[in-house]
Design a protein around this nucleic acid. Sequence first.
DNA 1: CATTAATGGATACCGGCACTATCCACTATC
DNA 2: GATAGTGGATAGTGCCGGTATCCATTAATG
Lengths: 217, 217
Amino acid sequence: MRIGELSRKTGVPVPTIKYYVREGLLPAGELTSRNQATYDEAHERRLRLIRALLDVGGMKVAEIADVLAAVDDPERPLHKVLGAAADRMGGTADDHDDAESAAARTTVADLISRRGWHTHESNPAATDLARALAALTRLGHGVFAELLDTYAEAAEQVAEADVAYVERRVAVEDMVEGVVVGTVLGEAVFSALRRMAHVDASARLFGAEGAPGGEKS
Amino acid sequence: MRIGELSRKTGVPVPTIKYYVREGLLPAGELTSRNQATYDEAHERRLRLIRALLDVGGMKVAEIADVLAAVDDPERPLHKVLGAAADRMGGTADDHDDAESAAARTTVADLISRRGWHTHESNPAATDLARALAALTRLGHGVFAELLDTYAEAAEQVAEADVAYVERRVAVEDMVEGVVVGTVLGEAVFSALRRMAHVDASARLFGAEGAPGGEKS
DNA sequence: CATTAATGGATACCGGCACTATCCACTATC
DNA sequence: GATAGTGGATAGTGCCGGTATCCATTAATG
């Protein structure tokens, strides 16, 4: 398959495909002449993954390059790929490092030990959590931390399901890709579900229905 | 308080504050002369909220403007604010509208009725969910949909806690802000927790620990 | 076999976004 | 009265995902 067909099959413009190759997201086609190359189903699959990560997962091109490099490296242990896939999140790192941040880090450390999690507060996710909690405190919503255990419980359920899902993938390369998909797209899935459940929960409580065209107060 | 002090207290540069005022995120200070204005704690609080929504929540300036306009409008019913706060998510809307998308929409509709949710598939969150599921299917991960009920269960727990949290805010304006904070920052919190739980769950299953320096498979 | 279309590769350019810099006339403060 | 700070306006910056354009070469087509 040549680049035009790849473009037609995936809906990605040819110059964009070239751009992804330049950025290292997609391996180049195999050259058959000086200006001819062929692409196979692996390229097609990779290209769809890239678009899903971009459009649905909201990842940046450079982050995708990192994650895919980890995916392609057979030496890379699975949990490192997971780490690379996970580290994409979190706000911009202009931390204040004030009293709220310190308190938040303590809260996170307490949570980790309380739940007996096999992780460490150096985990980027823990840093992100601390940042979010610190922001919450600065906004006067420090009480929100009381929900942490409820959140953690739900997160455990989801994570358990995710890992079980990854586990039952047959081949290892499928597992690795499964980690990426589960981490990134799973987040989009859960986020959407949470928002839908919000509508439902507030409808139950306040009597407003979710469909538009409702009442005024 | 004048703009310089506001800047010092919040760590936001003066030109940036002016920019937020221009973009309608922050009300202008009250003019005392032609080129002097005073700002109060409400400005300070609002400014912190803006930064949290930007840095932690990953929202765009225009989205924040929409949400804050809804927050400031006392006529706006609560669930509409929630909608405005929630609609910020989801990928770019260049939908394919193919077989996968149709199947995904059916899956979403089934899920809504199965769980008896008071929402409709016109909900933007439902659209986002359908998009994510369609992407999953295109990647050959259609089986992921089997996790949907586990995800939904967890989402319900979280949403219930969120709504209960909002409910116990005393004043109404606090409730409204609580909705925004709970929706946006709550997502950051859950996302971080999920990634931490991933590490823990995969450690339990594969015997790899969260700290680096592990094994090969 | 001649013409047209497509390709790989390189470079330049584009629009959107979140600021940042500069300038101005004016005011507060020392 | 000198210096710093202010509101307001306009222009510029750096990054990011692409697009556009060009070239020499090769494939496809009548």
